[in-house]
Design a binder for these strands. Structure first.
Lengths: 164, 164
DNA sequence: TTGAAATCGTTCGGTCCCTGACGATAGGAT
DNA sequence: ATCCTATCGTCAGGGACCGAACGATTTCAA
């Protein structure tokens, strides 16, 4: 059922180089292409959309999480954004500088800090997200709906294994 | 043909939040899961394998490219490693510090610089790559061979679209 | 009630990563 | 022979990124 798709030159040459070393080529192809796509799409989004708002990919991700779930403790926000606590500190600092987010002390626990999107931050996500999603559509335009679903499913399986 | 795989809690809640905004859910699911997996696997590799050699993911990537293709001009090396020229300057500097790579002036063109892996660098890749690939196998162990091939194929299609 | 242990967010040091600007070198046209 | 332009790798500046160490606060056991 699989239409032919040419391997890139890099992939062809790499295969030739590792031939006969007992390498699991299918695992190699699957994983390395995940990195290649993630890298390419990340750069694409930053250059063609996010730069306009002076947002990095991480900055947008954090803001998006805040938009979806509302105010969150740093702790949880870092976890859901897929970055470390210490990185989040810096990203939120940048977001504050842009007027997109604010910090608020926790009412009951003096150690904790709540991060929330400002009204400006919320408005910005409302503006960006549909455009972001439109680009996602562009990027996946040569895949059928079934193929997109199957792709997402396979990735969820991997995620489940890695995060176990 | 698609076995059931539970959406993560994050994905379920995010869908609920963006419902009715005319969002292309399939494109959203496909792309966002690429990022989640890339992130998770990158961290996994750095923590469980690369840290042992004091290599970052990028450092390993560059060294691997050198191992596969031999000495390369900075220019081309950056391109194949998926990073910018200026980033490569820093990464190669780190690799030099670790004794894994060396710089050599181009014979005919005074502007160019050739980067090559040292013997120690080559030996290190020979040692790491099979272990790296074994982890790739682990990570994809719950996908059939056909599913891995289909995953790689779908990603190549996206790559072709983004890099066009 | 008080001291030990756990947990919180931040800081620190080091690397990665980008864009934009730069000096150096090369190559082609006059 | 000498400009003009293109291309090379690097540097500067700003932000992202991590693990480890840290002070502040909370919690729990004695």
């Amino acid at each position: 059922m699989s239409r032919e798709v040419a391997l890139t030159r890099e992939e062809r040459e790499a295969r030739a180089r590792v031939e006969g070393l007992g390498i699991d080529i299918d695992a190699f192809a699957a994983v390395s292409n995940v990195f290649r796509v993630a890298n390419a799409v990340r750069n694409y989004m930053e250059r063609n959309l996010l730069a306009e708002y002076r947002l990095s990919f991480s900055g947008f991700t954090v803001l998006w999480v805040l938009w979806v779930w509302g105010p969150k403790e740093s702790n949880v926000l870092a976890e859901e954004s897929g970055i470390s606590k210490s990185t989040l500190t810096g990203v939120v600092k940048t977001l504050e500088g842009l007027g997109f987010a604010a910090r608020r002390p926790h009412a009951a626990d003096g150690r904790r800090v709540l991060v929330e999107a400002t009204e400006k931050g919320m408005a910005t996500v409302r503006e960006i997200f549909p455009r972001f999603n439109a680009l996602e559509g562009e990027i996946t335009r040569d895949l059928s709906t079934a193929e997109k679903e199957e792709l997402a499913r396979a990735l969820r399986v991997m995620l489940h294994t890695v995060e176990a």
